[in-house]
Write a protein that binds this DNA or RNA. Structure first.
Lengths: 215, 215
DNA sequence: ACAGGATTCAAACAATCGTTTGATTGACTG
DNA sequence: CAGTCAATCAAACGATTGTTTGAATCCTGT
């Protein structure tokens, strides 16, 4: 993995990462060939194996480049919220936690296709993404579930984990932009669906169903 | 596609479908070879192309075999509910609609891996599954959204479609059994997560957030 | 200017891919 | 029994797969 980036213009590694990213989003991991990646990147076929070891290594690198800053942002925001709550400046709320979790997806990311990439990631076979997912995501999930537990003390840890699970599912489905059946899958449909996502999962997490009111 | 099933034992077509199904679930479409399918099915390599035309044709057949009875069950149940409501026997409720939509997934299906297959389906590239999805799913989605609209008249059609979209996402995430991070992915985790799914999406659909109560 | 490590290159590696072919089998019909 | 058609078979088709090789080239530090 090259560390020298003194030259102007995109580094070879970055060119490969960019090309691989777009192709993985489009066709998935297995259906994307290393040759197609090298061709789109405009580099030699052997460059991929030289810089990333293997096709799987490249896949992990592509994911890490996008997920890392998002999760770092998530942790920073959550820590900020918890600090504000501790000094009594502003109390921790469910919605503030959800916004801290979701908004890093749509802002600050250099490339707007980062959400699409994360959506596609969940579409790969478990054997491929499970190790990556545990490595990249475990800390964030744990800390956010803990934070949710503090604002929803009446919900058991077991139930809360399930609800968080469906939160992820709703998010992934928006990121994959399996558009609402019939409508178009545009980049804007992600940002426009964003408020709906927050409202949906907020209600799902709270679950104010009183048990008798089922209509 | 053979129609003669006078012999005892599984038909060649069924053996291929069973083998393909398990392999598609395990590795996805692109990462599953026709040779691996034929080997697991115990049939000749050429049998797949003979009976299903192509690998894609086999994929569509595998999906159709599982989705068709589920969606038929969904439509029957919904029609039954609407009939009961029309004759005043029992009024239509949100939960009854949700149960009519979800329960066909876990019952009556000959093979318990049908849910897993549907989960995997959504993991394939759009270009592959979009036509299948529109063909198999459009009617059910439309009718259920209409039914939801009658029990939630205060929600606009636009909002309702988004909420239904997240309902699907939550369901898919459970079907794919991307287990709650760290825990095991077992067939039982699907049935045990089922009530949580219904509770979650029921709250998400209703959205009793009053706008001021955010904690 | 020169040595030396990092990078790029064309070419080839063995393996596997989806699909097709043409012969062979088996069961049923006339 | 002869004839017919669907089904199965071994074998091969050309194309593409991920990866490796060894020489050529670039860039840096002395």
């Amino acid at each position: 993995m090259s560390e020298t980036a003194t030259n102007t213009g995109p580094d070879t590694c970055e060119k490969i990462l960019d090309a691989a990213e777009s192709l993985f989003i489009e066709h998935g991991f297995a259906a994307t060939s290393v040759r197609a990646i090298a061709a789109r990147a405009g580099v030699n076929l052997a460059a991929t194996n030289y810089h990333f070891g293997s096709k799987k290594g490249l896949f992990a690198a592509v994911l890490h480049r996008r997920i890392q800053p998002i999760n770092q942002n998530r942790l920073q925001r959550l820590a900020g919220l918890q600090h504000e709550a501790q000094v009594g400046k502003r109390q921790l709320t469910l919605r503030s936690i959800l916004e801290a979790f979701f908004e890093p997806l749509k802002e600050g990311i250099s490339n707007p296709c980062a959400p699409a990439l994360i959506g596609r990631m969940y579409a790969e076979p478990e054997s491929l993404i499970r190790p990556i997912l545990e490595e990249e995501f475990q800390e964030v999930a744990m800390k956010y579930i803990d934070a949710l537990a503090t604002v929803m003390p009446q919900v058991s840890g077991h139930d809360l984990r399930w609800r968080f699970h469906f939160l992820i599912g709703s998010m992934i489905h928006l990121l994959q932009m399996h558009a609402p059946l019939g409508s178009e899958s545009t980049p804007e449909s992600f940002t426009s669906g964003f408020p709906h996502l927050i409202d949906f999962v907020q209600s799902g997490l709270k679950q104010t169903n009183n048990g008798y009111d089922y209509d």
